[in-house]
């Protein structure tokens, strides 16, 4: 199995994703430059965090037009596995591969901290190894992470089981206080209807290295690996 990590010029979590997948989880991983048009026969495409093209406009709004994104969109439409973290999630929403949008945090500030999340469903490729009664501590770092979708879209997502991760407190309660950015329904991560495209604001790759004292993120990335085996 081969991972490809898309590198936009303003990506800044590409190294972290490659380190986590390659050095910690011992997977084959290659960087894919945004100007390329070849996915190098990767099985899984990851869009990392960062500020793709500066994101002075809306986050991800320019990145979706980069040369490699056409390939990513084709790949996803053919059923290829794609996941985006943080800015990667924003880009996937902008590209129309995921429903909804990510708005400015409700407090209008960038927020970086450890945050608990828990799976809404444990039958998706990214939550296979998670347990609904065991919240995971995963770092967040974003200014535009407030998930929003219209009522209609949301109810369709619920019916299809597309809500994957929700913000909660250490005990797993879905409270308002444990919602860091004002996301609708405490949503932290979603997938598409076919369940081959995923996006989440929290950074699982930041919580995999035992030397940093938190490996909860492994549950998420290892779920992907397991779902392929």
């Amino acid at each position: 199995m081969k991972f490809g990590v898309i590198v936009f010029p303003g990506s800044n979590c590409d190294h972290d994703m490659i380190y986590s997948l390659g050095e910690i989880l011992r997977q084959e991983v290659v960087p894919l430059w945004h100007k390329e048009v070849d996915l190098k026969s990767c099985d899984i495409i990851a869009l990392p965090g960062g500020f793709s093209y500066g994101d002075y406009l809306r986050s991800g709004s320019i990145a979706r037009f980069s040369p490699i994104m056409d390939e990513v969109i084709n790949f996803a439409n053919k059923g290829g596995f794609v996941f985006g973290v943080c800015n990667g999630f924003q880009i996937l929403c902008e590209a129309g591969l995921l429903p909804g949008a990510l708005l400015h945090n409700v407090n209008q500030k960038f927020i970086c901290k450890n945050q608990y999340i828990k799976p809404e469903h444990t039958d998706t490729a990214m939550s296979l190894l998670a347990k609904s009664d065991e919240p995971l501590k995963i770092p967040i770092a974003h200014g535009e992470g407030r998930y929003f979708a219209t009522k209609e879209v949301l109810s369709e997502m619920i019916t299809n089981g597309q809500i994957v991760w929700r913000y909660c407190d250490a005990d797993g309660s879905l409270t308002e206080a444990s919602n860091p950015n004002g996301s609708i329904m405490n949503i932290a991560g979603v997938c598409n209807k076919n369940k081959n495209v995923f996006g989440m604001m929290p950074h699982p790759e930041r919580a995999t290295d035992p030397e940093l004292g938190n490996t909860d993120g492994k549950v998420i990335l290892e779920s992907i690996i397991k779902s392929f085996n």
Partner: peptide, 26 residues
């Protein structure tokens, strides 16, 4: 909390605070 303190996954003090910032040299 308005600063990204964890990008580059080398900050050891996020989960183990100490009197100075401690950086993992991977």
């Amino acid at each position: 909390e308005q600063y990204d303190t964890m990008v580059r996954t080398n900050n050891i003090t996020t989960n183990k605070p100490s009197d100075a910032g401690v950086i993992n040299v991977k």
